Amino acid sequence: MAESEEDIGGVAEAIRQAALLAMRHLLNREELSVSAMEVLHTLSVEGPTRITTLSEAIHVSQPAMTQLIQRLGRRNLVARVTDPEDGRATVVNLTQSARDLLHRLRNEDNEKLAAMLATLSASDQEALRLAMHVAGPIIRRLNDSAARLAQATTGPGMQSTEGEQ
């Protein structure tokens, strides 16, 4: 394996380890499934969104997304409202309860991370701070690229059929 391939492999493994850290220690699965968190996060970033758009973004079938939205609606986390651009259609929007929940979960995640980071030496903490200062924007661009690539390769009606876990 060429040195650059080994470097890319090392970067890929570091990203996988970071994802594993987030999955194991930051996602509150007892409160919300991964799919539910993805929907709430998407709505918090994108604003009111149609179910078809959400199902494409989260890579679940439209029926699975409809069921998830119904469950989130029963928990008063989302509400369907008339689409301001097309009065015949509806969009899904976050409720204040969802915004409050996301804020609380973000704070809890930050507390968990702070406790984990406190176990590192001061020099490791500084090295990680510097690395994330550089890597953070790159990871955001990777997420954006992955979303665009997934949307380009997964047309409407071709989504995964995975539902809420």
Rank of each mutant, 00 (worst) to 15 (best):
L149D: 10
A18H: 04
E108W: 08
A150E: 11
G10W: 02
V91T: 00
L32Y: 02
Q159C: 07
A146V: 14
H25A: 09
L43Q: 01
N76L: 03
R141M: 14
V39G: 01
L128E: 00
T66M: 04
A152Q: 06
A14E: 05
L26F: 12
T161R: 15
T119Y: 03
A152L: 09
P63M: 05
S123V: 11
N107T: 09
A114D: 11
I51M: 07
I69F: 07
P156K: 06
S123H: 13
L21I: 07
A79E: 11
Q67W: 08
L94K: 00
E6W: 05
Q151N: 09
Q96M: 12
E38V: 06
T52Y: 01
D144K: 13
A89I: 01
T161K: 15
I8A: 12
G155D: 01
G136D: 04
I51V: 09
L72W: 01
A79P: 00
A2V: 03
S145D: 15
H41M: 13
E38M: 07
L149F: 14
H103L: 12
R74P: 03
V34Q: 01
T153V: 05
T161E: 15
T90G: 05
A19F: 11
H59P: 00
L120T: 05
A89N: 14
A152G: 12
V134K: 13
R129A: 13
L94S: 02
L21M: 10
T161H: 15
L40T: 08
M158A: 15
R75G: 04
E3S: 08
E111M: 10
L120K: 08
A2Q: 11
R141H: 13
N93I: 03
Q62D: 11
A18E: 04
M158N: 14
T154W: 07
Q70S: 13
Q17T: 10
R50E: 12
G136L: 06
S121C: 04
L105N: 09
N107G: 13
D7V: 15
L128V: 01
L130R: 11
V92D: 04
A19L: 14
R16V: 07
G155Q: 13
D124P: 00
A98F: 02
R75N: 03
